[in-house]
């Protein structure tokens, strides 16, 4: 990193131009809780750092009609302090609250958590479950990409090297909706998910599930959107039988590896356990959201 350059552009156009012009390795810096670790552990040696925190579009939280849009570089801490967002998307915030420690959340952003492209990122499954869409900009213009399509493999995204995730749009919530995210870690804090499960569901007036999305972390090379698990809930009253089917579908969707954080066997089993527990919390939250 002898020749590292640091730039902090104030517009999206300047940021993408800087990235496009860089021949060597460029990295976008938001909270830095992954990029700086990788730099100082000699895992990467970037030639250019583009700090995007001075670009307004990346740091705002705003309502668009009934939907929420928040900047990709908004820190976890800033989201935690936004009362209405917490009320609207408690499951997304379950994930955000689990990223690292308070110190880490003081810097870490959902955009960074996503673009680091770890299968174990805690904010990603509840964002996928929420149906969040990422707004991406590059030298050739803007495009919208569902969050579940961003990560293509461990450490890999579908983004071009000069593209930036600008913000996320979370759709308007129908009444009687609830979401939740649970992860399993051996420690209570400061840990990486061995398994994570996010559930987002909507009930009708009779308490039957009309819509659901279920996403899993750390059980495959990328975070997973599991349609079969959602199908197990839709049309049911999210009763014992449905939860049983959800757990089975979640476990069946896993394609994990043995690593230092967990075994294949363990991850498959606990994915079902967590999906079920998360669904129970989402159900309770939906019931309260009349």
């Amino acid at each position: 990193m002898q020749n590292l350059r640091y730039e902090a552009p104030e517009t999206l156009a300047d940021a993408t131009a800087l990235l496009a012009a860089e021949d060597g390795m460029a990295r976008v810096l938001a909270g830095g809780t992954d990029v700086i670790v990788q730099m100082h552990s000699d895992l990467i040696e970037p030639d250019l750092i583009v700090d995007v925190k001075n670009i307004p579009e990346l740091t705002e939280i705003a309502k668009e009609g009934g939907a929420y849009r928040f900047g990709a570089a908004v820190s976890g801490k800033t989201l935690m302090l936004h009362e209405d967002f917490n009320k609207t998307w408690p499951g997304v915030m379950d994930g955000v609250r689990l990223i690292g420690s308070l110190q880490i959340r003081g810097r870490a952003s959902v955009g960074g958590n996503l673009c680091n492209a770890s299968p174990a990122a805690d904010s990603v499954p509840p964002m996928i479950a929420a149906g969040a869409v990422a707004s991406v900009i590059g030298p050739n213009g803007a495009r919208d990409i569902p969050v579940e399509d961003i990560v293509t493999g461990p450490g890999q995204t579908c983004l071009d090297k000069s593209e930036i995730v600008v913000s996320f749009l979370l759709p308007e919530r129908p009444p009687r909706s609830g979401d939740a995210y649970l992860r399993f870690t051996p420690r209570t804090e400061m840990d990486i998910a061995v398994v994570g499960a996010g559930v987002n569901l909507t009930l009708d007036d009779d308490g039957a599930c009309t819509a659901a999305r279920v996403a899993l972390a750390a059980v495959a090379p990328t975070p997973l959107l599991v349609a079969e698990a959602a199908d197990a809930l839709i049309g049911t009253k999210v009763d014992e039988t449905a939860l049983e089917a959800l757990a089975a579908a979640a476990s069946a969707a896993c394609n994990p590896i043995d690593d230092k954080r967990g075994t294949v066997e363990y991850r498959i089993k606990v994915a079902g356990v967590l999906a079920r527990r998360a669904a129970a919390i989402a159900l309770e939250r939906a019931g309260k959201n009349q």
Binding site: Y6, A8, L29, G31, G32, T33, I36, V37, H40, I49, D51, K53, S75, K77, L102, Q103, I104, G106, R107
Partner: peptide, 13 residues
Amino acid sequence: GNLVCSCLVLGVE
């Protein structure tokens, strides 16, 4: 006023 790990902040920031 925001709590951070100073090892994960660049001086230039």
